[in-house]
Amino acid sequence: KAKLLVLLYAFVATDADTICIGYHANNSTDTVDTILEKNVAVTHSVNLLEDSHNGKLCKLKGIAPLQLGKCNITGWLLGNPECDSLLPARSWSYIVETPNSENGACYPGDLIDYEELREQLSSVSSLERFEIFPKESSWPNHTFNGVTVSCSHRGKSSFYRNLLWLTKKGDSYPKLTNSYVNNKGKEVLVLWGVHHPSSSDEQQSLYSNGNAYVSVASSNYNRRFTPEIAARPKVRDQHGRMNYYWTLLEPGDTIIFEATGNLIAPWYAFALSRGFESGIITSNASMHECNTKCQTPQGAINSNLPFQNIHPVTIGECPKYVRSTKLRMVTGLRNIPSIQYRGLFGAIAGFIEGGWTGMIDGWYGYHHQNEQGSGYAADQKSTQNAINGITNKVNSVIEKMNTQFTAVGKEFNNLEKRMENLNKKVDDGFLDIWTYNAELLVLLENERTLDFHDLNVKNLYEKVKSQLKNNAKEIGNGCFEFYHKCDNECMESVRNGTYDYPKYSEESKLNR
């Protein structure tokens, strides 16, 4: 008799109507990190870190770059004969040098303040090359056809396309004075040089004057150069050297050249137009028929994500570079809930034993079982409120962090190594801060989002509990077992918050 009662009780308990509160689960393989956990499985997430590029040089917003090819900045601007293909260059979106560009200054020497000139050019998007001192009329008392084997072109001695090597005419090199007034309405880049012979005999042979000088002056520039005559090792078949100089001439300003020898005179100059998204990159990537809004030396990035880990040097509207390998923000729920887990921000989770793959029309909802059958029903209101809140948060985070910009490298010469090392340390410090901030932001927001979901499920549970009161009992896994019969209409009233407690209280009292 006792065995019969136990079996009867078990049958009745199993047959009781139930309603459970749960949440969506799926077959997603997404994982995120939080402050407290690593690799948390979630139903949905968004990636904030771009880690792919196309490996190509592309047009930037429809404008092609200027590819210097086998030449570098120095060779292009001075007019190395091997860089003749660059003479027609007028406009570009950015400038590309190759790491091993070999054609710079063909006659050995240095372009002074080269690093600063590169910085200036990094904001130039177009130029006009014009004859600042016409070759045939500007130097009537001097020979202007100086050439050298060091600047050979097609097997013949030649010289820079933008400079003139002035030497004596006959047996004399009379003092020369020439000036140019900038009437271009924009900055003009003027380049010139000073020749330093290897011996007094060479000085006399070329310029006749043993104590020659070169003077260059404008409103913002004033220097006097004296040739340094000295024996030097042979470089590119030359014992002599040429140093090259430049200045930016403001609109309306005048530049005056005065010399008694050794002047490498300007022939062509450049009127410059600035462009905020221009820059110089060093890259071996090849040019393709493609378009982008962000270019790196590795390749083009076409992404609206706020961060990238491809390269710190970028041109155009680019994500911020960070050292992170993963920045994924959760938008959905835990896919593998932890039992009795309390989140960092106070939300209680884990009283549900598992997510439901059968509930596909919402994030949170119900599963019921009664004599009429069983089924899932999503709670659309709480789901939609959660979707709206999380979507707004993700968009806000992306908008705040998605300050796209150009980031170019800084140039230092060989004598500025300590400054370069200090600059690298400062840049590394800023990069570490950006990386830390980005990672911390994602970790915190992921923790908040998961706790937010847990709290929403808990609130749904409490909503049902407050309606049923003692007409049902909690069975410990997020479910309630009714003390009365609850048909589909009754189940719907529980879900929509209109459950009639008094209607079922007498039946429940008897069954309790």
Score class of each variant (00 low, 15 high):
K1L: 14
K3R: 14
L4T: 03
L5A: 08
T14W: 09
D15N: 01
D17K: 09
I19C: 00
C20V: 11
C20N: 05
C20D: 15
I21K: 06
I21R: 03
N27C: 02
T29I: 04
I35L: 08
E37C: 02
V40I: 15
S45C: 06
V46E: 05
L49R: 05
E50T: 12
D51N: 14
H53A: 11
G55T: 11
C58D: 05
K61Q: 13
G62L: 02
I63K: 13
A64H: 14
A64M: 14
L68D: 11
L68I: 13
W76N: 06
W76V: 10
E82S: 11
D84L: 10
S85D: 15
A89S: 12
A89E: 12
R90L: 12
S91V: 07
I95A: 01
I95R: 03
V96S: 01
P99G: 14
S101G: 15
N103F: 14
G104P: 07
A105C: 11
C106F: 05
Y107I: 11
P108V: 14
P108H: 08
D110G: 13
Y114L: 14
R118M: 01
E119D: 09
Q120F: 07
Q120K: 05
Q120Y: 11
S123Q: 10
S125L: 15
I132D: 06
P134C: 02
W139Y: 12
N141H: 08
T143C: 03
F144Y: 06
F144R: 03
G146K: 13
C151Y: 14
R154W: 08
R154Y: 15
G155K: 13
S158W: 01
N162S: 10
L163R: 01
L163W: 07
L163N: 03
L163T: 01
L166I: 15
L166Q: 01
D171W: 02
Y173F: 13
L176S: 11
Y180E: 03
K184S: 04
G185C: 01
V188Y: 01
L189V: 11
V190W: 04
V194L: 14
V194N: 01
P197W: 11
P197C: 11
Q203Y: 02
L206S: 05
L206Y: 03
Y207Q: 02
S208G: 15
N209A: 12
N211H: 12
A212K: 13
A212D: 01
S215G: 06
S218W: 11
A230N: 08
K234M: 01
D237L: 05
D237G: 12
H239Y: 06
G240K: 07
R241Q: 09
N243A: 13
D253H: 09
T254L: 05
I255C: 00
E258T: 04
E258Y: 02
A259D: 08
N262Y: 02
A265D: 08
P266V: 02
Y268H: 15
Y268F: 14
S273G: 05
S273P: 00
G275L: 08
G275A: 14
G279A: 15
I281T: 04
I281Y: 08
T282I: 12
